[in-house]
Structures are given as C-alpha cells and as structure tokens.
Design a protein around this nucleic acid. Sequence first.
DNA 1: TGAGTATATGTCATTTTTGACATATTGCCC
DNA 2: GGGCAATATGTCAAAAATGACATATACTCA
Lengths: 109, 109
Amino acid sequence: MNSAKLKKLQAAGWKVGSAKDFLNLTNEEALLVELKLSLADALKRARTKRHLSQVELAQRMGSSQSRVAKIEAGDPTVTLDLIVRALLAAGATRGELQKAFASKEKMAA
Amino acid sequence: MNSAKLKKLQAAGWKVGSAKDFLNLTNEEALLVELKLSLADALKRARTKRHLSQVELAQRMGSSQSRVAKIEAGDPTVTLDLIVRALLAAGATRGELQKAFASKEKMAA
DNA sequence: TGAGTATATGTCATTTTTGACATATTGCCC
DNA sequence: GGGCAATATGTCAAAAATGACATATACTCA
C-alpha cells in the first residue's frame, strides 16, 4: 500500500493550532452567532406580525412548540438550517430575510 | 397526574399532513436548497479568488478537505451552518454573503 | 381564585451531521 | 508514459441536533 506517501502528504500541514488560527475561529464563530441571533429576532417579528402562535408555526414546519421557542430564544443547539426553515414557514419575505442576514455584521465591506 | 388534560391540549391540532401542508413543506425545502447551492457557489468563488486550496480552507475552519469539497459540491448532508462557517473562514465579505443570500429566491418580495 | 392560552425550560432517544480517512479522478508539467 | 498537486467520492464512528414530551412560567379574563 502507498499509505506512507499519503500520510506524508496529508501531514504536510495539520493541527497547527496557532494563536492566530484560534482567534480567527472564535471571531468567525462570534459572527455566526450574531447572524443566528439576528435571524432569530427576524423570526419572532415575522411570526407575530402574521399572528401565528408558536404551536401553529411548529405545525407548519413539522416541528414542535418547544423547538420554536428555542429557535427564538437563540438556543445554541439550533442550527441555521432550522432558523431559515422557520422563517420560510412563517412566510418571511425576501426583504425580511435579507435585512436580518445583512445586519449586525462587522465584516469587511 | 394531569397528563390527560395536557394530552387533549396537545392533540388539538397535530399530524394533519394535508396536501397543502405537504406542498408548502416541499416548496420551502426547495427554497432552502436553492439558498444552499447559491452559497456553495459563493464559497467556491470566494476561495479561489483568494488563492486558497481546499486543504488550506479546511485548516482555517478546522475541517477536512473532503468536507470542503462536499460543501462546494452541494452535498445534501452539508448544513447551512457549515457553509456559512466556510464562507467566513474564506474571508468572504459582507457583500459576497449578501449577494449569495439574496439571489435565486422566488419568495414574495 | 381558577381556567385558558401562549411561551419557556429541561430532558432524552432517535436521527442527522461531522471530521477523518482511503481512494479515485482530474489537470498540468516534464 | 510518470509524477504531483488539487479536487472528488465513499464510508464510518463519534458528536451534535431534532422532535417529542413533561412541566414551568406568564398573562388575560371572568
């Protein structure tokens, strides 16, 4: 087998874990969290604006009231996928989505 | 215990599964898939634009080359979270993110 | 006060996603 | 042709997220 060569190739640059990398990771993680919170807020607004209860929204998206509550509360176990699904199920407009997605970001323009 | 009453409450409206609900679900799912593909394209552009290999990007975001390849290929097992993390790790600008997020949507304006 | 409705919180078995690895493929230079 | 770098594909154990459920809290109305 040629795994020896492959090992060398793959070992070329792995698990460096420098301080810079660490800081970058946490920074990106912070940005992602901000984005999620922003979308969670947008969801709450979109849902109440349409006079939907958490139970009703849960039915629409095939989930449960408790999970909808967690989405809106910014629970760390909730994925972006679920938040966006909830927004779509709540009938959020493109403008509402974009606005939430665009705001709060501190990235380079 | 009062579970009988609770059961009645929760059973009020569950598992209806009407055709309308089903169609809505698939439509929203389709929108989500479009969004993911759009972001996957944006990632590929952002990465190559910065002359990063998939291995380098994987290192930056603490993942592996194969997963980066799957992200860009639109693999169905890849979450929005992972795609956005990749975009952030690739140093995508706010504009790049917004553009990908905004396009391809067929929602109500 | 109590009943009703909406939302929040905590837990957990099942499902889904992840990084890692092996390997295949492509493109490029000699 | 071979060598080499980049990317694609397939698999899987471990980790994470999900829906469901129980229950708690908050608020309104009578």
